[in-house]
Simulated assay, not measured.
Amino acid sequence: MSKPVLQIVIGSTRPGRVGLPVGEWILDEAVAHKGFEPELVDLAEVGLPLFDEPHHPRLRRYEHRHTREWSAAVDRADAFVFVIPEYNHGFNAAIKNALDYLHQEWQHKPVGFVSYGGVAAGTRALQMLKPVVASLKMVPVVEAVNIPFVRTFLDDEQRLRPNEVMTAASAAMLDELARLAVALRPLRDPDLAED
């Protein structure tokens, strides 16, 4: 059986964002984990406009090319890590917009979170996003990485230099994502379900 595809989605699109080095770090962790085929998905590059489809996403009647491409990308994944900032005590619009574009493509897939910010480490954004992903029938894992005062972990080359707590948290999250990606596979592919 092939390794699950893990998409690490960088949720911030703001110029000068910290999300890119955080996402690159968790990608390196996922490669070292060896339990996945990891991919980095940068919402700044995906470039979705504010949700602009005329039909409800559950119908999968997409009229725009950007939506069809986003649908194909998300469909390919078995699990996700959302790398999210905290804006004004909540999650940012780009990640919510990306989620709202689709429906069935998200279902029965586990999701982990790497949140970052100041003193709260992005945890308020993470907690607000959990009911959103649950409504899409995603399975949020309990294990997460929360990075407080994130800029203090960037070196002169703007690469994230994690501490032991962050590294241990990422390993625990990736282990759980790997387990759930395999366990939920029959729900995503009815041909794999037992009779």
Score class of each variant (00 low, 15 high):
F80D: 06
V182Y: 11
L43V: 02
K34E: 04
K3C: 07
S115T: 05
S135Q: 14
G35W: 02
L48N: 01
S135G: 13
I84H: 07
D189N: 10
L192H: 14
L177F: 01
A172G: 10
A32H: 00
V41P: 05
R58I: 07
L40E: 08
P85T: 11
A134G: 15
L174W: 02
D28M: 00
R188A: 09
L99S: 12
H64Q: 10
M138I: 10
H64F: 03
L40D: 04
S115W: 01
A73T: 12
M138V: 00
F91W: 15
A73C: 09
D42R: 03
K130Y: 10
E176L: 02
H55N: 06
N146I: 07
V81I: 05
T152M: 11
D75P: 09
N92R: 14
A44D: 07
K3F: 02
N97R: 10
L99V: 01
V22T: 00
P4W: 12
P186V: 08
G47E: 02
P57D: 05
T167D: 14
G117H: 00
T152I: 04
P162N: 08
D78A: 06
A120S: 15
R185M: 06
E69R: 15
A172L: 06
D189P: 09
A171Q: 12
V111E: 13
N92P: 05
H33K: 01
